[in-house]
Design a protein around this nucleic acid. Structure first.
Lengths: 212, 212
DNA sequence: GTCGAAGCGGAGTACTCGCTCCGCTTTGTG
DNA sequence: CACAAAGCGGAGCGAGTACTCCGCTTCGAC
């Protein structure tokens, strides 16, 4: 009965070769996107995986679906990084997370443009957000960042780092570290306030769902 | 002799209707790119200008050439903003320039992806760089920013703002102001240093010439 | 070992986009 | 006004893209 069908009539298990090819395709896509950007053609990806385009489309309904799967992987990894950072003492977790998540993004630059473009109820995304909020609260409690900061400020910080990574990636792969250092310095408490309202959560959600 | 030819054999003057259409095309392109991004088709631009695509291609050799002309306009405007900021007292010119140039970019978002992608010997670009360097020196002199900053740090700051503007433009057109406030706070002098090397001028040049 | 289902490659399809070509129109000089 | 040069529109071309289809191959349950 191993070849029986699930609720929607699809086979429950992929054949061994098919499952293998699926993994090959995901790895190949990550490599190709990292070098050429998301504009890379599906044929190129299939060739890099050593399969035909037909096989690609039997595993992923569209190119976009393939990208979404890659993004999901990255998002889950970010969630893990954030959770790990919670353990750090003295409210340092936030800075730690920003550094490691940026480094991870710099290595997986291929799918960056779509990274913050998932459904707002995506489980991994919700998880990341909650954990970041906790990191922020902890950092505030230890006086490492301004009290006026919101989670949406951190989202914006990550967008900004993404922009710098994408711009500088080929020429100066570590340039974002300097930028992050400036940003972190800007997050620290000072006598005067920032003087502009933060984005609302709803606005961030609209950015995430509408752009594409 | 008004219809005589120049050194390369091209007509020296455009006919009145042709010159008018050229302006219409530039304005239409700015509008269309602002809404749809640089991916907008040439046919759409021609229609917005009320001319045919043939006319577009008689005035601009390629779509890229049309974009380059728009970028040049923005760059010259930025140069003017920087020069005006020099007048401000107490080393405030730098912050002023960052604010006004960002606001200007937010309104001309169409050609942003190509904005820092001109030949490094472009006159307007050289001018902007020199002026920014002067603004930076002035800000340092008055103790408004860290001594360790370089011009390349400011280039990176502008890339970062561009990223935020592009991401948030449709939903929260003013969100970049909050981000800039954080950045400016990060530029201010503090006891500890940034801890990472700035980009070199050569690296910035390579980014500017290679990307695209 | 058998055999049907699942998987496979890659030529072919449909479409988009930048760009060209050419018969007709407008301009402005003499 | 005449008329040559300059300009015009937009159908059509070629290149490149995401995606489909189908005859052949491989897998693995029995």
């Amino acid at each position: 009965m191993s070849a029986s069908t699930g609720v929607l009539g699809q086979p429950r298990h992929l054949r061994r070769d098919a499952a293998e090819n699926r993994e090959l395709l995901l790895e190949a896509a990550a490599r190709v996107f990292a070098v050429q950007g998301l504009g890379a053609g599906v044929e190129e990806i299939a060739r890099a995986a050593g399969v035909g385009v037909g096989t690609l489309y039997r595993r992923f309904s569209t190119k976009e679906a393939l990208i979404a799967e890659l993004v999901q992987d990255v998002l889950e990894r970010m969630s893990a990084l954030a959770t790990a950072a919670i353990e750090l003492p003295d409210g340092r977790g936030l800075e730690d997370f920003l550094e490691y998540s940026s480094a991870y993004q710099a290595e997986h630059r291929g799918c960056l443009p779509r990274l913050w473009n998932t459904a707002p109820d995506n489980e991994a995304l919700v998880q990341v957000r909650q954990t970041i909020a906790a990191l922020l609260a902890d950092a505030k409690r230890h006086g490492r960042v301004r009290d006026e900061l919101t989670s949406t400020d951190l989202t914006m910080v990550m967008w900004s780092i993404r922009g710098v990574i994408e711009t500088t990636r080929d020429v100066a792969p570590d340039a974002w570290r300097r930028h992050l250092a400036i940003l972190v310095a800007g997050l620290r408490p000072t006598p005067d306030t920032l003087g502009h309202r933060p984005m609302t959560r709803a606005q961030v959600d609209r950015v995430v769902t509408e752009s594409g």
